[in-house]
Design a protein around this nucleic acid. Structure first.
Lengths: 220, 220, 220, 220
DNA sequence: AATGAATGAGTCTTCATTCAT
DNA sequence: AATGAATGAAGACTCATTCAT
């Protein structure tokens, strides 16, 4: 995970001017925490393992983030930045086929590059989104409201079939994230995974093709 | 969850002739365990909470299932029975449009009726399927291999477009299960959920329509 | 400390009908906790030491009282029962000299019998009464308001000199509790302590004599 | 607390010629430590909080005082200087009534000005005087022995009633220190405290009046 | 069949102290 | 003279599991 997060440190000395070593350590912690929380969820995650993965002592980790919850919050903040970016790029002025196709591909790339982020997000939501519930109901809803309107407009202009935009978005989310969240199952069934270029390419093609064909106006 | 499971109890008292009260308690435990494991995953689940939800003491629960892992195994066994059933019904002789449509609907119904089962499955797989990895690689793979062949045959006959059958199956799984696994997010964005009939109907229609349109041969 | 306390157990099974073993263990814990909290205050007290003094494992102690704070609360509840009893007996109808004399003696006896209770109370109040602040402002204030009125009535009738009743009460409290709270200093200076009968007798006589002479009307 | 203390620093840098800034910092630390130790006792006190109250980093505080115990020792040394001064002024040649009255007033003033000192002393003694036990048994005992003799002489001359001098001293200590140590309780019961002039005046008058009346020979 | 009692291995967190700069 | 970084020991609390009844 690379996106820096500027949340509080837990020790009272965060005065905005973080040292290089601080930045480095915080980044290493967040990266390690991502994997751990993604795999085991909040309760199941172990601070000690995060510290080990970050190459430091548990005490030192807690010197940077005062508590398990603090780490989790910081990780989620980073996550949302990454996770919601692609949807923002959906352009009302663009060609529906190209826009949707690009969006699908971006999401699959994201799943390939940040599989832990995907799992972490899934985990948090599956537990009822105790930490990011307000984000879902707030800024995410606003964003989705906006984009469903874009889709409705496309349909009104006859550029796509009139499908329920929410379900379309859910379908894209579900399908693309599936490659990260269910990677174990996919590997068991196909012997490969989204992190391998060939498979990613076939996934992108198939998914885009089905959804686009399914959504395009027959006459289009 | 009601399907009884005949896995081992852990204590030596299961002599085959289970009392009615025994059966009832085992069922209540499994039902409670389903929710708990589904929401929190294996590590995060708490025996005490399962016992409380099942209306009995922690000690008594452990009288029925000797350990946390035993409960988890029993729950997973039940889960797989339920979870894999619909795919088995996919009939090579049937009409692709009807078969796929029926399969999608069954999966959505399943998500609506057993949302915890869906989450539990997701959780287990996301953690690397430590418990059911062999099932995935064994009987599930066999089943999927068989059904991908069915789809390929349909394509070979020109009854559907030649899409990669694995990706098609993943898309159906992902999309339908999404309504259970991400219910919190869906409710935050739409104000409703798959357990409500209207929403379920619109989900089924939209999903089936997009996938079927996306998969059907243009000339078909 | 012997007074039983009926506060909650911390484990959720407290159904009112406590077993003998439960009662016994709870009593032993409270007794041990009294000493520990009295000597070291809340922060300084160590659960492990309480458990050791009570002759059980830390885990078992926490089976009875869910947290350090719970123990502390239970101990304080017991304490207040014991501590405030004597003042209640101050009888408006009685002879001031006898009433005050009896009250002083009771308080000195209390300090002799429950020196830890005295220290514990002192400790809590010295820290700002974070736990019993409301009791002080509530029931204790009500009780003291009542008794200051008694003293004022005595003065109005000319049975004692018109002294400020609050200060009189504080003087009695301070002086009598001093024998428990400052026992170490007293022993360093006199070689003995309030728990020894001779010393206790001389303390009672001297204190009572000075206060009574100091308070009685000259003509009386 | 302002009295400077010349106890050892713990680090080897104290070469006798302390900078102004050094002196100032040491004073600020001691002042902050006084409050902290007074409120929470030795174990309960937190170095970090002392540092914060003194407006410096924890590390810097430990640069001045090598360890928690060192700070505590320095604070106690200061304390004893302040705390035992008034008793030394008790003049055998003076008039008992005036001498005792002056002593009582001095002690009450002390409680008003240095409430933390009073609490700190109480705390240390209540824990068994682990740090100042030798002082109590040494110089304090010598001082008290001397002053009890003064009181006995007064009694022998018929200038006061023959009361046990130890108990008289304890009574004065207890009563006057009570206004500092139990300030929270006093405020809960009266709405005011010894730091307010009116209340202090009434305390001084009442306490002095009761003790003097109680101690003076009837004929005197 | 059921439960209260007890435990030990974790798990998070605090805190005095040391180190390097 | 001062501070940020780091640590290890200790402390509170959790939790699956065992024991006795």
């Amino acid at each position: 995970m690379s996106a820096p997060s500027e949340s509080e440190t837990g020790n009272g000395r965060s005065n905005g001017s973080a040292t290089k070593i601080q930045e480095k350590n915080r980044a290493r912690i967040l990266e390690a925490a991502f994997s751990e929380f993604a795999q085991f969820g909040y309760r199941g995650a172990r601070i000690e393992q995060i510290a080990a993965a970050a190459g430091m002592s548990k005490s030192n980790l807690l010197y940077y983030f005062g508590s398990k919850k603090d780490i989790y919050k910081a990780v989620l903040a980073d996550l949302l930045d990454i996770w919601l970016a692609p949807l923002r790029t959906l352009d009302p002025q663009g060609d529906p086929r190209e826009e949707l196709s690009a969006y699908i591909n971006q999401k699959i790339e994201l799943s390939a590059r940040y599989p832990e982020a995907s799992k972490l997000f899934a985990n948090e939501v599956m537990q009822g989104a105790p930490m990011i519930g307000d984000v879902l109901e707030g800024s995410l809803k606003a964003l989705v409201d906006e984009k469903t309107q874009v889709i409705r407009t496309w349909a009104a202009k006859g550029r796509i079939r009139p499908v329920d935009p929410h379900h379309l978005i859910f379908m894209i989310w579900a399908t693309t994230q599936h490659y990260a969240d269910f990677a174990t199952q996919i590997r068991a069934l196909t012997g490969t995974g989204i992190e391998e270029a060939d498979f990613r390419k076939s996934a992108e093609e198939t998914v885009a093709s089905i959804i686009l064909e399914g959504v395009m106006a027959k006459g289009g």
